[in-house]
């Protein structure tokens, strides 16, 4: 493989830079990751809440529908 000086310098600078900067960059990365996790958690929470709301709505509708049916039957029996 042919030695390519610009690529070598670019790679060396990137490696040395990341070692030198890691002390300063790490806390920033931690904060960025924390924000990302918070955002993810918030999305998950909102989704779960909406899912539960839908579940409650359907359950209530079902209960009301069944109760109305049951009342209808009861009235029918009473009339009979």
């Amino acid at each position: 493989m042919k030695f390519h000086l610009p690529s070598f310098l670019l790679g060396y600078t990137a490696g040395a830079g990341s070692v030198l900067l890691s002390r300063h960059v790490r806390p920033l990365l931690v904060e960025l990751a924390t924000s990302a996790y918070r955002f993810g958690d918030m999305v998950m929470a909102r989704t779960a809440i909406k899912q539960e709301d839908l579940e409650d709505l359907l359950a209530e509708a079902k209960a009301r529908a069944r109760r109305a049916t049951a009342n209808g039957h009861a009235n029918g029996h009473a009339r009979a």
């Binding site: 958690d41 929470a45 359950a59 209530e60 009301r64 109760r67």
Partner: peptide, 19 residues
């Protein structure tokens, strides 16, 4: 949060439960 007597379901928000 919500209490539906018809379906007898009680939905509660509990502090500290999140996560």
């Amino acid at each position: 949060v919500r209490h539906a007597v018809a379906s007898r379901r009680l939905r509660l928000a509990v502090p500290g439960l999140l996560g």
